[in-house]
Design a protein around this nucleic acid. Structure first.
Length: 574
DNA sequence: GCCGTTTTCGGCCCGACTGTTTTCAGTCG
């Protein structure tokens, strides 16, 4: 159990899992609830949107759910001294290898201890190598990749004629940014045959487990697929159960408990009182809505089933009406192939083709937002010339649109995605900016500035009156690059005060703002814009990814500016 | 160890599969 003053959230989460395991070893019965608490805290830390070290600096460690007085105290000790006496005490005598071995699937602390005691040094070494391999390989998959495998499996399962319904559930249905494994439920007349069919999937690599009701296989890319079989008349409960999240289900069951019910994938039953010996009958549900309604709850959309406060809102009938793809009236971040000698990659489709695509999507407007002309290759005067030329091009396009009938697109805006330089300045002068309808700014370099510096950098760029949108604000690339470190409270406050918009970028490797920050932004009253950042007209179909992120962040239509009509949006940029 | 529309005390989800200690512990989601 290694600790240091500068632990990242990821490392702290791992530490808390180890602490939970240590309690498990010492006495699982006595520490039953501490184990739950530490594991819960670990998961919470892993998903936190600020580094705990920063929160500790600000004295806000206990703002993280699942971290109370005690854990906050231990972490505080670690941040100031590099060590925790309590964590050292509880893990005394447990070899470090034990915690590493627990990263292997199916290995808990008891098994790991046994292995270290009984197996040879070379055997252990082999297994530790395996752990490192898993660590390197075990990246979570992007949505499109997972979706492709899931649809292949769905098709395969439907080949079995006993199969009446197949649904992809779990994190894929909740539209989490990255997918660890794939969960599928089937309604079948013949569970045995259906499971047999499932494990005969042509691309199968390995059967992990196979029982009467569930099975689990490994498919190429190291993706595991869990199958749950159900009957048609209780399929609703199965959907609910397997959609999760785990924390939503736990919260839902705690809530149901208080009403005297017990929930499972089979349905809802009245809790047995101590006198009763025979099991009570199970209420079955064909669909999810009736399942939730039975518990006096409004239906909860899958994207927000994360165990935060959705059950409370459902109970009080205050759930948001989440934004939908059909609400969008335009896409404000699109790169055409019109060559303005940009600092980063140019788009691949012509403005004309992009407008045609926007027509198909029933948009009223879109914005051509290429990267700014590269600063190193041009003088300021040249940049202004280039931008004037582009303005004319867009004006021509608008003129021809005004002459064309039956197109839904009425207006193309002239925009630009401008780099925010490390010092917060923009590589386009005031004169250049005046050629634009509005500007988008974003960070494409110097990602590692300290939080205060980075916040200052971004705010100084946002301050220019022409700047409307802060694009992919976290600047992360999933599985490749961590995001930048910003003081979000300050950013949100500035945006609200000055009518600046935060982008929800739909690119599957970005999904940025991330869902949790979207939720914070909504609560702070910040308006957002869902854009595709398309570099090809086909990318414009990906808008749904951004909409999913917005939905996970509890966005309603009113929170998203590009759901506005053209007239309303024009007012915004005035 | 955390947490609160019933609680600052007294609760804390529920079931499946594996392997083996044939009645359950360990692990997982």
């Amino acid at each position: 159990m290694l600790t240091s003053k500068n632990m990242t959230n990821r490392q702290i989460a791992e530490l808390l899992i180890d602490v939970a395991a240590a309690h498990q070893l010492v006495d699982p019965k006595t520490y039953k609830f501490q184990i739950i608490a530490y594991n819960r805290a670990a998961s919470s830390v892993e998903h936190a949107t600020s580094e705990l070290k920063d929160l500790w600096d600000d004295g806000k460690l206990d703002s993280v759910p699942g971290i109370g007085k005690s854990i906050a105290g231990h972490l505080s000790e670690i941040f100031s001294t590099g060590k925790s006496r309590h964590f050292e005490q509880i893990s005394k005598g447990i070899p470090v290898e034990v915690f590493k071995l627990m990263e292997l699937p199916g290995i808990g602390i008891k098994t790991a201890i046994k292995m270290v005691k009984e197996e040879s040094k070379t055997e252990i070494k082999k297994k530790l190598d395996e752990v490192n391999k898993i660590r390197n390989k075990n990246k979570r998959h992007l949505l499109p990749y997972a979706q492709k495998i899931a649809s292949e499996l769905t098709k395969w399962l439907l080949d079995d004629l006993n199969c009446k319904n197949v649904q992809v559930l779990g994190s894929l249905r909740r539209k989490v940014a990255t997918i660890g494994d794939i969960d599928i439920a089937v309604a079948t007349n013949n569970p045995v045959k259906t499971i047999e069919h499932f494990v005969n999937f042509p691309k199968l690599q390995k059967i992990i487990e196979k029982g009467d009701k569930t099975a689990s296989i490994l498919v190429p890319g190291g993706v595991s697929v869990d199958l749950l079989v159900s009957s048609v008349d209780s399929f609703g409960s199965a959907l609910q159960h397997f959609t999760g999240s785990k924390f939503h289900n736990i919260a839902l069951r705690e809530y149901a408990n208080k009403l005297g019910y017990s929930l499972s994938e089979y349905g809802i039953k009245k809790k047995k009182s101590k006198k009763e010996t025979s099991a009570s009958t199970v209420n079955k549900f064909r669909d999810e809505k009736s399942f939730y309604n039975f518990l006096k709850l409004d239906y909860i959309e899958p994207e927000i089933r994360e165990g935060t406060d959705e059950i409370k809102a459902s109970m009080n009938h205050t759930l948001p009406k989440l934004v939908e793809v059909g609400d969008l009236k335009g896409d404000l971040h699109i790169h055409s192939n019109y060559d303005i000698e940009t600092s980063h990659d140019l788009g691949l489709s012509s403005m004309k083709d992009l407008v045609k695509k926007a027509n198909e999507l029933k948009y009223e407007y879109l914005a051509m937002s290429e990267h700014n002309p590269s600063k190193s290759k041009h003088t300021e005067a040249q940049i202004v010339d280039i931008l004037k030329r582009k303005r004319e091009k867009v004006e021509q396009l608008n003129y021809s649109l005004s002459k064309t009938k039956n197109n839904s697109v009425k207006k193309v805006f002239n925009s630009l995605e401008i780099d925010i330089m490390p010092d917060g300045l923009l590589p386009v002068s005031g004169v250049g900016l005046q050629t634009l309808d509005f500007a988008i700014v974003s960070v494409h370099s110097s990602f590692r500035l300290k939080r205060n510096e980075m916040t200052k950098r971004v705010l100084s760029a946002l301050a220019h009156p022409k700047v409307l949108i802060f694009a992919h604000p976290v600047a992360r690339k999933i599985n490749q690059r961590e995001g930048i470190d910003l003081n979000w409270e300050q950013i949100f406050e500035f945006c609200v005060k000055n009518n600046k918009i935060l982008e929800i970028n739909s690119s599957p490797a970005r999904l940025d703002l991330p869902d949790l920050l979207v939720r914070d932004a909504v609560n702070a009253g910040v308006k957002m814009s869902i854009n595709t950042d398309s570099h090809h007209l086909d990318h414009m179909d990906g808008i749904g990814n951004g909409v999913s992120v917005a939905r996970r962040g509890w966005c309603e239509k009113k929170d998203i500016i590009n759901t506005m009509s053209l007239e309303k949006f024009k007012e915004v940029i005035q």
